[in-house]
Simulated scan of single mutants.
Amino acid sequence: MKKLKSAILLALIVATTGFSSCKKDSNGNTSGKGAATVKASLYGFDGTSGTTFSSTAAGIVKVGNMLTITAIKEGSKESITIVLQNVTGTGTFGLLQDNSAGHGAILSKDYTQPADGTLNYSTSLPSPTGVKGGGEVKITTLTSTTAEGTFYIVGHNSAGKDGFVENGTFSGKVN
């Protein structure tokens, strides 16, 4: 779990750096890093009904065989971060708690407070009843320049509350 937390922290740093280096041209279009979208039709925390999640300035970063997908919900500080290890092509990657591959995800109510365990819902934490966090990522396209796929996530915070994403999609430029 410590290895996963380190990888996710590194991914957040890389993604934040990517977002901060985005540039807008005179027409307001984003160029360079962050040229990806992440959407979900159901997304929520703490037993609430699902709402939508949309980010049109998301980041997909591949360093070696580690692929990170990070998105900040438009108009909020909520975010989704997915870290996949040993990605060499398309396929299905499980996010089940304590998976041997080291894959994981964090849903955050406030990405500016990564150390607050009550605001961050991880696939590496169980619920109070022992239900494991998890989910799945299906990468349907992966080239040196583009990626796309689908995902769902169930995470828990340090207080044992649930966060979830269903019907998630990602697509865009790989940095």
Rank of each mutant, 00 (worst) to 15 (best):
M1D: 14
L4A: 13
K5F: 15
S6Q: 15
S6N: 14
A7P: 00
A7C: 00
L9I: 10
L9D: 10
L10F: 02
A11E: 08
I13A: 10
T17R: 02
G18A: 00
C22V: 13
G28F: 04
T30G: 08
T30P: 04
S31V: 14
K33Q: 02
T37R: 14
T37P: 11
T37I: 15
K39R: 15
A40V: 09
S41A: 15
Y43A: 09
G44S: 01
G44V: 02
F45C: 07
F45S: 10
S49F: 02
T52G: 13
A58T: 11
G59Y: 13
V61T: 05
V61Y: 03
K62S: 02
V63A: 08
V63H: 07
V63E: 05
M66K: 13
M66N: 13
L67G: 07
I69D: 07
T70G: 07
I72Q: 09
K73E: 09
G75Y: 04
I80H: 04
I80G: 08
T81V: 14
I82C: 03
V83R: 15
L84P: 05
L84F: 08
N86A: 12
V87F: 11
G91P: 04
G94I: 06
D98N: 14
D98F: 05
A101K: 15
G102R: 15
G102T: 14
G102P: 13
A105F: 09
L107K: 01
S108Q: 07
D110V: 02
Q113T: 05
P114I: 03
P114T: 01
P114A: 00
P114N: 00
T118E: 13
N120H: 05
N120W: 06
Y121V: 06
T123G: 11
S124L: 03
P126N: 14
P128L: 12
P128S: 06
P128Y: 05
G130C: 11
G130A: 10
V131Q: 08
G134K: 14
G135N: 01
K138D: 08
T140C: 09
T140W: 11
T143M: 06
T143P: 06
A147V: 12
A147R: 14
E148W: 00
G149F: 05
G149T: 02
T150P: 06
T150F: 04
T150Q: 06
F151W: 01
I153Y: 03
I153W: 03
I153N: 01
N157L: 06
A159I: 00
K161D: 05
K161R: 00
G163F: 00
F164S: 05
V165N: 02
V165F: 05
V165H: 04
E166Q: 08
N167L: 13
N167Y: 08
G168A: 02
T169V: 10
T169Y: 03
F170V: 08
V174T: 09
